[in-house]
């Protein structure tokens, strides 16, 4: 197990380098951040030169990348062009997005798994059909439609929630946005759990468990669920990264000033240090989430643990 963890950690290094290099190239090499800063009028050549020097833009690309990574590892993510340190933006944005992702993940786990188990055990009944159709609708309708509709009816018409989340983004304000963010994944978790449960109810070891005279509850929880949740856990783990990074649409709709919001602003204004900095942290989060999934997988399935 220890060797497995070390191997997985080592595998993360090339992935991290590759992913960050790609994003670095895309932001700094394709397009000129300095002229973007000045807009249509074009910069004064002396100022432009000074800026290029300050951001190491006068070096070859690979040197720029190395210099940038070196600064990142000493904790310096640079300054946004408006003079605010990128780390300051991160300090505000990441906790908010983390809270939002947590709310969404809770919905996925609780609602998704419960619905999945219930429908998986009652295949073909009316409840099953209803939930299946609902998941299809949710998957088919884009998030911005669901988000703005929810915002309009719950926030503007019914007045149950504030249409816009305050800058602190308290947990209770994030319930509806969290649900909206979770919906698509929630539908997938439900379907995944349902299929997995339905498949495993026919498994030989479930028949054995029944033949042993175990109470129905024990058969379901100890024998059926434990096996059925293995693929679901994998999906959920991979989804943590997506939830953190993919909240751009939801955060825009509800005016949540999290990672997605900052990234959106950064891209809009070609604010390169912000974009690259945030993405580097997101890459790290993705990698750690995936590591977590692999470890959890080994905990849940002994066949992998001892492979």
């Amino acid at each position: 197990m220890g060797r497995y963890v070390i191997r997985r950690l080592l595998q993360m290094i090339p992935v991290f380098i590759g992913a960050t290099f790609l994003i670095f190239v895309m932001v700094y090499a394709l397009g000129d951040p300095v002229s973007a800063l000045f807009g249509d009028r074009g910069p004064d050549p002396a100022t432009a030169k000074a800026l290029r020097e300050e951001f190491n833009l006068d070096h070859p690309l690979w040197q720029q990348y190395l210099l940038y990574m070196g600064k990142i590892f000493s904790g310096d993510f640079g300054t946004a062009f408006n003079g605010q340190p990128v780390t300051e933006l991160m300090e505000r944005a990441f906790p908010i997005s983390f809270r939002l992702a947590l709310v969404a993940l809770t919905f996925e786990i609780v609602l998704g798994i419960v619905l999945g188990v219930v429908t998986g055990l009652r295949r073909g009944r009316s409840l099953d059909t209803t939930v299946l159709i609902l998941t299809l609708v949710v998957i088919a309708v884009p998030t911005f439609v669901l988000g703005t509709t929810g915002q309009f009816f719950l926030g503007v018409e019914a007045g149950w929630i504030d249409p816009a989340v305050s800058p602190d983004a308290r947990l209770d304000e994030l319930i509806v946005p969290g649900l909206i963010l979770a919906l698509v994944s929630l539908a997938y978790v439900t379907r995944l759990t349902r299929t997995s449960v339905a498949e495993n109810t026919r498994a030989d070891y479930i028949r054995t468990a029944i033949a042993k005279g175990l109470p129905r509850r024990r058969v379901t929880v100890r024998h059926l669920l434990r096996n059925s949740l293995i693929p679901v856990v994998t999906y959920l783990g991979a989804d943590i990264g997506t939830l953190m990074a993919g909240a751009i649409v939801t955060e825009r709709i509800f005016n949540i000033q999290g990672v997605g919001y900052q990234l959106y602003q950064g891209i809009l204004r070609q604010n390169s240090p912000t974009v690259v900095g945030f993405v580097v942290v997101l890459v790290l989060i993705f990698l750690l989430a995936n590591l977590l999934v692999d470890l959890l997988y080994a905990v849940l399935d002994p066949r992998i643990r001892y492979a």
């Binding site: 024998h223 096996n227 399935d301 066949r303």
Partner: peptide
């Protein structure tokens, strides 16, 4: 078939 009749994760 004892392999499939025993629970793989317990």
């Amino acid at each position: 078939d004892a392999l499939s009749s025993l629970n793989p994760v317990l």
